[in-house]
Simulated assay, not measured.
Amino acid sequence: MDNYFEVGKILTTHGLKGEVKVNPITDFIEERFTPGTSLYIGESVDSSKQEVVVQRARMHKQFVLVIFEGIDNIDEAEKIVGKKIFVKESDRQELEDGSYYFKDILDLPVFDAETGEKLGILNDIETPGANDIWEIKPENGKSFWIPNIASVVKKVDLDNKRIEVSLLEGLRDED
Rank of each mutant, 00 (worst) to 15 (best):
D2Y: 09
D2W: 03
Y4D: 06
V7N: 04
G8L: 06
G8N: 08
I10D: 01
I10M: 05
I10G: 02
G18T: 03
E19A: 14
K21Y: 00
V22E: 06
V22H: 09
P24V: 02
I25P: 00
D27Y: 00
D27S: 11
E31R: 12
R32V: 14
T34F: 01
T34Y: 01
P35T: 09
T37P: 01
T37H: 06
L39M: 09
G42N: 08
G42Y: 09
E43M: 07
S44T: 15
D46N: 15
D46M: 12
S47N: 10
S47Q: 13
K49E: 03
Q50K: 14
V52D: 01
V53H: 07
V54W: 03
A57T: 05
H60M: 09
I67N: 12
E69F: 00
G70H: 10
D72F: 08
N73L: 03
N73E: 11
E76H: 10
E76T: 03
E76V: 00
E76C: 03
E78C: 02
E78R: 15
K79D: 05
I80P: 04
I80A: 06
I80M: 07
G82A: 07
K83G: 01
K83T: 12
K84P: 02
R92G: 07
L95S: 02
L95C: 03
E96H: 06
E96R: 12
D97Y: 02
G98P: 02
Y101P: 04
D104Y: 05
D104I: 06
I105V: 15
L106W: 03
D107I: 06
P109W: 11
P109H: 10
F111D: 04
D112T: 05
E114I: 13
T115W: 02
E117I: 04
G120K: 08
L122W: 09
N123R: 14
T127Q: 08
D132I: 00
I133T: 13
W134G: 10
P138K: 13
N140C: 01
G141M: 06
K142A: 13
S143M: 02
F144K: 13
F144M: 11
V152E: 11
V152P: 07
V153F: 05
V153M: 08
V153D: 09
K154N: 08
D157G: 12
L158D: 04
I163D: 07
I163H: 07
I163W: 08
E164I: 04
L167V: 06
R172Y: 11
D173T: 13
D173C: 05
E174P: 01
E174H: 08
D175W: 10
